[in-house]
Structures are given as structure tokens and as C-alpha cells.
Design a protein around this nucleic acid. Structure first.
Lengths: 208, 208
DNA sequence: GTCTATAGAGGGATAGAC
DNA sequence: GTCTATCCCTCTATAGAC
């Protein structure tokens, strides 16, 4: 017999994934988890607190292996390959959708806002870390704001996940377009030393 | 006495904006609109149909002036300036949030999915159009997938709007980072003709 | 077209037996 | 810790008076 707390957390994730935040009620969660409905309140006090716990638990469990994979990346195309693989895996598991639903719900409900913000931060941290490492000695680094860029990447992933739900073909073409931008960045990185220096100078002059 | 249909549509938008899709019930919408609750069903048949109508009406009203402003843009930084201004205005009006909420709700409710997809398409169309025009003779055009890029941009806006709800500072830094990327692209566009040709060649060879 | 009243379903949460 | 039973609330939607 598995731990009931864990079953409820798993049930909450599955309920959000398949029925959205609106459909994740104490009754549907308990049914998905195969436990009694009253146990939601015994173990978590309220549905909102269970949802918060589920969102954070799911995120923490997935971010750690993701961060480890990012440590093995040593160029931008590799980073995008991991990002694309991550999107496919997490989409299948439904974790990005859980976060997206929490973010949507958080807009009007401060009770889940802090958990959603924390989960998003957990994803963005490793992205920021790897971007800083990869771009450290690129001529473009001076023109970029790495922490902000990491946040933009995280937000874009959420948006694409939502897009995927209403138009899978459109979402796929958006991801393909980002893949192709990687080629562009690689080309810039592969410019000869003369062009590289010129680029660096221009970036320095413009970046204020 | 204003048209009741229009009051209900405005009320629905305001209700979604301030209370999320979950809080946009027949009662709260009618209260916001200042009309009787039963009129939701008399005029629209169901709450879902009202939400769909409201989402499409709000989107159509805003996309047209947006498209006109894009016609006046003639470089990438100008495009990003319009994008940033648009984000600020629509954020204040709440239209992006309405779309984000509809997209989140659509994941588990096919009844609103088609309206959400259509509204997203309405935004993406002008973006694709202006990107194609601006990048037509850029050396980077060959490496990019314009339709996919437009979809990525639209999705990113949705994600940043949701991010804004839980962490306004983080969302602002994400937008600032995109502004700074515009500098980078401008620098590439301003490279001398020799470097430009070299870049174009490299892009051609890589883009397959 | 607009109103009141209400049916019928489903939600959060609690009491209390086991 | 787990269960049944239940309270009280809000929701969609409709019936029917005006």
C-alpha cells in the first residue's frame, strides 16, 4: 500500500493534466488517486494546498535530472536539442501543463500564485545557469541580458505548451523555427576572428 | 440604454480579466455587466458560447489597429518597439489575459478550444506578415522559418503575460532581454557588405 | 426582452464512527 | 488514518410571469 499523501499528489497532477485546474476538485483527485475524498482535507487541509504541494513536488522531481543533462551541454545547438527533447518528454508527462494551469489559475487566485511562481523559478534557474556558461566568451554576450533571456525562454515554453493544446501543428512549427534560429547563432559564433572582433565592437557601442 | 448583448460581452471580458476563467460564471458576468443572470442564456444559449463570443470580439477589435501600426514599421527594432508598446497596452486592457485564460481552459474543454485557436491565429497573422516583409532581403532570412517564428512570438507573448501575473519583475526583465536581442540583430544587419555576403553563404550552407 | 424562482448537479469542508 | 454521511454553498440552465 503506497503512501496516501503521495497518491493524492500523483492524483492531483493527473487530474490537472487531463481536466485542467477547474476539473481538479477534491472528488476527482481522490477518484484518480483511488482514495477517499475526505483524505484530501485530512492530509492537506484544503484543495488549494494540495494543488500547491503537487505542483512543487512534480516540478522538483523533474528539474533535477533536467539540470544534470544541461551540465553536459557545450554549445547552443546542444542546448536547444535538450530543450526540444525536454519539451517532448514533459509534454508527454504533463508537467508543463500542470505549471501552465497553475499560472493561469494564479492570475485570479493569490492562494496558488506563490507556488506557481516558485515552480517557474525552479525551471528558470538551470536555464540561466547554462546560458551564462555557454555565452561567457561569445561576442554576443555583451549585448544580451542572460537572466532576462532565461526568463523569456521559460515563459515561451509555457506559451508553446498552451498553444500545443489548441493547435499542435502550429506549436510544432514554432519549435522548429526556434531550432532554425540556433543555426543562425551558430553561424555568428563561427565567424572568423576579424568579423568576430568587429561584431564585438559594434555590440559594445550599441549596448547602452 | 446600451445593447445588452454588448454589455454581456464586455462583462465577460472584465470577469475573465479580474477573476480568471473559473470566476467567469453566469452570475459574476451578469453582475459585472449590470444585467440579469438569465439574460446570459437568452442571448448566448450558454456561458461557454458567451465566453467564445467575448474572446473573439475582444481580439478582433484589438488586432485591426495593431495590424495598422505594424504597417508603419520598417525595421526590426521598430517592430520590437511596437511589440513592447502592444504588450503594455493590452496588458492594461486585459486582452492578452483573456486569451491566456481561454487557452488554459481550452486544454480540457473542447467547447472553447476553437475560439481560443481562432483568436490566437488572428494575432499571429499580422506578426507573420510584418516579419516576412522586414526580413525579405536580410541575410538571415534563409535560415529562418517565418511562419513558425511568428507562432513562437505569439506563444511567447502569452507565456510572458502569465509570468507577469506571478512575478512582474521577472516578466519585465524577460521583455527587456528581448529588446536587447534586437540590438544584436540590428548589428548583424549593419555588418558591411563583405561580412554580409559571408554570413549569407554560411547560412545557406547550414540551412538544411 | 427582461425578470423571479427554482430545479438539479456538483463543489468544499466537517463531524463523528471505526 | 480512513471511512460514511451530511451541511451549505454556488453553479448552469429552464419555466413561466410580466
Amino acid at each position: 500500500m503506497v503512501d496516501t499523501r503521495q497518491r493524492l499528489i500523483d492524483g492531483a497532477i493527473e487530474a490537472i493534466r487531463t481536466q485542467g485546474l477547474t476539473g481538479a476538485t477534491a472528488r476527482t483527485i481522490a477518484a484518480t488517486a483511488g482514495v477517499n475524498q475526505a483524505l484530501v482535507f485530512y492530509h492537506f487541509g484544503s484543495v488549494h494546498d494540495l494543488l500547491k504541494a503537487a505542483c512543487l513536488a512534480a516540478t522538483r522531481a523533474r528539474v533535477e535530472p533536467f539540470a544534470r543533462r544541461l551540465d553536459g551541454v557545450d554549445d547552443l545547438r546542444g542546448l536547444l536539442a535538450v530543450g526540444r527533447a525536454l519539451h517532448d518528454e514533459e509534454h508527454a508527462r504533463g508537467n508543463v501543463m500542470v505549471l501552465a494551469q497553475m499560472l493561469a489559475g494564479a492570475q485570479a487566485d493569490p492562494r496558488v500564485a506563490d507556488a506557481a511562481a516558485e515552480a517557474l523559478r525552479l525551471w528558470i534557474g538551470p536555464i540561466e545557469h547554462v546560458l551564462a556558461r555557454l555565452l561567457a566568451d561569445s561576442p554576443v554576450a555583451d549585448a544580451l541580458d542572460i537572466p532576462g533571456l532565461a526568463r523569456a525562454v521559460g515563459a515561451a515554453f509555457i506559451g508553446i505548451e498552451l498553444y500545443d493544446g489548441v493547435d499542435p501543428d502550429g506549436a510544432r512549427s514554432a519549435l522548429d523555427a526556434l531550432d532554425r534560429m540556433a543555426v543562425l547563432i551558430e553561424v555568428i559564433d563561427d565567424l572568423g576572428p576579424v568579423a568576430r572582433r568587429a561584431l564585438r565592437g559594434k555590440v559594445r557601442r550599441s549596448a547602452r
